[in-house]
Amino acid sequence: MFPSKFEYRRVASVDEAVSILSQEEDAKILAGGHSLIPLMKLRLASPELLVDITKIENMSYIREDDGEIAIGALTRHHALETSELLAREVPVLPAVAATVGDPAVRHCGTLGGTASHGDGASDLPAALLALDATFVAKGPKGERRIAAKDFFTGFLETALAPFEVLTEIRVPKGYRSYSFQKFNRRAQDWAIVGVVAVRNGTTNIGYVNMGVTPLRATAVEQQLASGASDDDAAAAAAAGLTPPSDINGSSEYRAHLAGVLVRRALSELG
């Protein structure tokens, strides 16, 4: 299999990418390519122009900045997985990154790429949502910041405009207690359901594959905040949600699984 024809262009700066994206009708940003290229090989996507941003310098980093952890959009999963700074300050991210795909996939995939792709079945977007991350995007009029709760807007859609480039993801420090429950049946499979729970006083819970976008377990969080027991809170795991049905499980099964995994996650949190 190979993609339909397109033009490949490599850019040296974010401004150059923004300028091309602003002028071209049917362009897509190419980072690690491990979501986009499979879609293009299956001809589910066929952009006319790919703008490769991976050679832009200084967009792969993990550092403390203004009381938060700033992560460059081109930071690869492998770098998240092995970061000592993250292991100390935001340990849920290395733990989640280490389960994405397999080592070869993690050598390519980037945090900015997986966030921009906005797949409800991906693990890292759910973690970023649970962490109340902030997304920094650059467009023709400059930079803006988007809160995680406003970022994932629909099926493979985000708040990013077609001419904007995601440049940085910022996550707060302090969520040292976490649990990641990824339920699948075979090595390297996607989660049938995943639960990312983080706690820093309050408890935030992100869901993988419980809807078309990454989601928060709002009902569970509210129960916990009002003093409910872990079991009672977990019973609300699927309240108000319509999880997808597919070959790996029905909507009812996912709703049940979410309750089980939330309970496990809550019992594991410190």
Binding site: M1, Y8, R10, L30, G33, H34, I37, P38, K41, L50, D52, T54, H78, G101, D102, P103, A104, V105, H107, C108, Q188
Partner: peptide, 27 residues
Amino acid sequence: CDTSSCGACTVLVNGESVKSCTVLAAQ
């Protein structure tokens, strides 16, 4: 598999494993 699952196409790029069915030569 041609879908980045099986690893038969694994090569090293700058010393690190990648699945060459899911990478463009241009990249």
